[in-house]
Design a protein around this nucleic acid. Structure first.
Length: 508
RNA sequence: GGCCCGUUGGUCAAGGGGUUAAGACAUCUCCCUUUCACGGAGGAAUCACGAGUUCGAAUCUCGUACGGGCUACCA
């Protein structure tokens, strides 16, 4: 209905690792923007200098890059609405706060932290365990509403530290239509006079999000459900600032919950239950503590994104595997689920397994190469091209390519003897000795010829081929795992195959 | 405590007045494979509860319960 271009933003606070839920918010933003041919903006909400964490911003951008969710405008790329870091926009916020004071929608408050604590203590009661700075209480505090005008002026002239608070109206009803929840309403009496501008001159989230969304012409705002209670403040600000007609449409996304128990999924849950919560490895610069990410755990970004997309959304069909392009095509905010979803790591791994299986060798090659390189082994692309197709259906996480396939490049040093020895015999040993000889003269070194030769020799020895297959596998692999034995022999090549059989024969 | 949001198998979920209430993960059984997987067949398992509206409610309404979020000069 509107012809204005869709513009959405992801507005993280750079305070640490990028959480699953954060990535999903980015993803929904991105999908919505692309689906509607709009712009996707990354805006850094760094208004809390006390929580500044060096490196966190670059880290977030790296995560987005890994996920393939590249913003059209960002601190890195710039754009027509630069700067994209709120700390760099500091000067622009004060005027709006002052404007609100002049219009009577906000006021100066001089209360110190101690005074606020004292107030909370003093007015705390059983029916009201957490008293709010609101219409009932602001007259008991030191602010430009409770204090005489001369005194306010005096305090201001003296440079007394102060904040600017919104003056929440009494007995009003605020309501709006949320894109995922439908109609939502609040009574203004239950909302406190939120701080808009802090004593250090920085805006709080409440002011900054409204001012920047307006200035950056944001049309749709997605954020986590934890923001719902402060939505009335934002709605009012849009109205008081006179921008009501430009207000974005809101969508409050359901939360991602702990797999066990209840509550929001946190980094701690990952540590406790043994799965990643952050997109990529994050090292806390203060403590040096490393938290493993999905990338390093061995997830493909395609799978990570896919898994996140359907955690709270589906297209109504039975399809579960979606590429990013398909998601862009099919995503609709209206089909986002309202309720929170418990995170299921098993299902997450299933997605990764599916994506590994459906990815072609060329796609997987660099990742698998890295897995081996991290183990100190360089493998040629030629070999990789041969082993990846053989290995991928048994690998759920990338590092398993090494676990499942290291024997291709490292001759086994130990054997799963209990698997062979009980049924081992001189006849079998003789068979292998003879087979080695015929292998030397084998015309074609491929699956079919190996199999034929193996079966013929087995028949001559009057042993069932099946009883020889397991020993052969152990000789080649060392254990009871891996692709078909003849497939392995093909990749190993004639010399190495014969060599391994000989070596094993010494031990069996 | 208050305010807001939510509630379909263990988990993710489709379904929005009439369905045998899909599908997926996990789980169990079997088949395939003398490795591990993949694949295939099947099983068990769900509408939180109570009222109402209706010929008929998982679907609509209201209560209750339960869960979650928020309740900072953090986002």
């Amino acid at each position: 209905m509107s012809s204005t271009k869709v513009r959405v933003r992801f507005a993280p606070s750079p305070t640490g690792g990028l959480h699953l839920g954060g990535v999903r918010t980015v993803l929904y933003n991105y999908l919505f923007a692309r689906h509607h041919g709009g712009d996707f903006v990354l805006r850094i909400e760094d208004t809390d200098q006390s929580r500044f964490v060096p490196g966190a911003e670059d880290y977030i951008m790296d995560c987005l890059k890994w996920c393939g969710l590249i913003p059209d405008e960002s601190p890195l790329r710039g754009g027509p609405f630069a700067p994209y870091r709120q700390s760099e926009r500091k000067e622009s916020y004060r005027q709006y706060a002052e404007q609100l004071v002049i219009q009577g929608y906000a006021y100066y408050a001089f209360d110190t932290t101690e005074e606020l604590e004292h107030m909370r203590e003093k007015f705390k009661s059983d029916p009201n365990p957490s008293p709010q700075y609101d219409a009932k209480l602001r007259n008991h505090m030191r602010n430009s509403i409770s204090l005489p005008a001369e005194e306010v002026k005096k305090l201001l002239d003296a440079g007394t530290p102060h904040v600017i608070r919104i003056r929440m109206p009494e007995n009003e009803e605020i309501h709006f239509d949320d894109m995922v929840r439908g109609h939502v309403s609040f009574a203004t009496n239950s909302v406190d006079d939120k701080v808009l501008l802090k004593a250090d001159g920085m805006p709080t989230y409440h002011l900054a999000v409204v001012v920047d969304d307006y200035l950056m012409k944001i049309t749709h705002a997605f954020r986590g459900e934890e923001w719902l209670p402060s939505a009335p403040v934002h709605l009012l600000l849009w109205k008081y600032l006179g921008w009501e007609n430009s207000m974005p449409q809101w969508a409050h996304l359901p939360l991602i919950l702990k797999p066990d128990g209840h509550g929001k999924l946190s980094k701690r849950d990952g540590d406790r239950l043994g799965f990643p919560v952050f997109a990529m490895n994050w090292t806390d610069p203060k403590t040096g503590e490393l938290t493993e990410g999905f990338r390093e755990k061995g997830f493909l970004p395609e799978a990570f994104i896919n898994m996140l997309a359907v955690l709270g959304w589906n297209d109504g069909s039975e399809q579960e595997l979606f590429s990013l392009d398909e998601l862009v095509e099919k995503f609709s905010i209206g089909r986002v689920h309202k309720g929170g979803a418990k995170f299921d790591y098993e299902k997450a791994k299933w997605f990764n397994h599916e994506w590994i299986k459906k990815s072609d060798t060329e796609r997987l090659l660099p990742d698998v190469k890295k897995v081996f390189r991290d183990k100190g082994i360089d493998i040629s692309n030629d070999t990789l091209e041969k082993i990846i197709p053989l290995l991928k259906e048994r690998c759920t996480l990338l590092p398993e390519f090494f676990e499942q396939g290291s024997f291709f490049v490292i001759r086994p040093e130990t054997y799963d003897l209990p698997a062979v020895q009980p049924k081992w015999s001189e006849q079998k040993k003789t068979f292998f000795i003879q087979w080695i000889e015929s292998l030397k003269d084998l015309q074609e070194w491929n699956f079919a010829s190996l199999e034929t030769s193996f079966k013929e020799k087995a028949a001559n020895s009057e042993i069932k081929p099946g009883e020889l297959l397991l020993p052969l596998r152990i000789m080649l692999v060392g254990g009871k795992f891996g692709p078909a034995a003849f497939d392995i022999a093909v990749v190993l090549g004639r010399d190495e195959t014969i060599g391994r059989i000989k070596a094993a024969l010494e031990v069996f």
